[in-house]
Amino acid sequence: MDTPDNRSIKIIFNPATRGGKAKKKLPKIEKLLKEIDIDYQLFETTAPLDAISMAEDAKKEGFNVVCSLGGDGTAHEVGNGAIRAGLTFASIPIGSGNDFVGGLGIDGRWQDGVSNLQDGEIKEISIVKANDRYSINILDAGIGGDIAKASEKHLKWITGSKKYSLLTIALLTRHKPYPVKLTIDGKEENCNLNLIAAGFGQTFGSGMNVLPGARFNHDKMSVAIIHDIGKFKFLRLFPKVFSAKHVEETKYVTMIRASEIIIEPDESHNKVLRGEAEGELFSEGRIKITAIPKGMKVLTPKDWDFNNRSVKIK
């Protein structure tokens, strides 16, 4: 049985978080960890995807909790390793985007993440598997994947929703929709797609409320599909995502729930369909997305409620 007294925690720190600036917080974080007598060891990543294998190795090293110290990208990697190893995931948020842990009741203050290691309780949440990668919050394909690709090279000095917004505007100047075949729970449809987002979290991109009806205790993932609506209509629609008012634009946006989605690009068109999860690229081409109910154990504040926010969708 898990209790705060028997938690042995492997903390995985990404020193590249916030362009390396987050490292300045490390002494204060470790000071608080020691003050409240957390049993932990700290490890630093040295390359992309390091955190996946480091988290996966934690079980054989004797740890029963793996903790992400970074932003959503670090949480994505640590979460993937935790799922594969069957370990409990926790997070101390210090990134520019902390949507996932925010959805779990930690408001973005690293102090709350540290306290949660001592006082939190384990809950099971639903997740999504896309090809060979897990998404612990929200994944998307289409222009969102192109934005994730562009963010690796451009506007590195800008973070959060401002960066996402600027890259969206820049990419829309030459953007064309993606001809795909969508198979949703066995039902096929050929369409021109701008973006499809799926998951059990509600927000991504530092506060974009793309799946307002999602819950981490649902069996089916929430899905938002933005169709081919033209560049200018897309630009008018984009700001509404922050307030979840895009769900009212039923002519252009489809909101559903599903257990399985297969996205197959039309190979006769010379356009790469990219997928990303928690800001991390994971695929180019065909994507199979599967809901996994109660697929992950997470450490959450005791008063956290699965139903803390609600927008009704079909």
Rank of each mutant, 00 (worst) to 15 (best):
F63Q: 09
H246V: 10
A141I: 07
A85S: 14
C67V: 03
D57W: 00
K220R: 04
G97Q: 13
K245T: 06
I287R: 10
E124H: 06
A22F: 14
K34F: 04
R257D: 11
G142R: 00
S165T: 14
I261A: 10
L166G: 00
G207M: 00
K21W: 06
L104H: 04
E249N: 13
I169K: 02
D57V: 00
L167R: 04
T168I: 03
E121Y: 00
E77K: 00
N137M: 02
I147E: 01
S206I: 02
P15Y: 06
D107F: 01
T3W: 05
S310C: 08
I92L: 11
E248A: 13
K123W: 07
G295T: 10
T173Q: 05
A130R: 03
N307W: 10
L87I: 09
V66M: 09
C191T: 15
E121K: 13
S115V: 11
D57E: 12
T74M: 03
R274V: 04
I83M: 01
F232M: 12
A82G: 13
K23N: 14
I292M: 11
G142E: 09
N190A: 07
N14E: 02
A47T: 13
N194F: 08
L69K: 03
S243F: 08
Q202W: 00
F234W: 11
G142L: 05
E44G: 06
V298W: 05
D57K: 04
E124A: 05
L211Y: 05
G144H: 02
I106P: 14
G97L: 12
I122Q: 03
Y134F: 15
I12N: 08
L299T: 06
P179V: 01
D132R: 14
I147M: 00
G71Q: 02
G205H: 06
G201C: 06
D37T: 09
H218F: 12
T3G: 02
R286Y: 03
G113Q: 08
R109A: 13
L273Y: 08
K28S: 13
I226R: 02
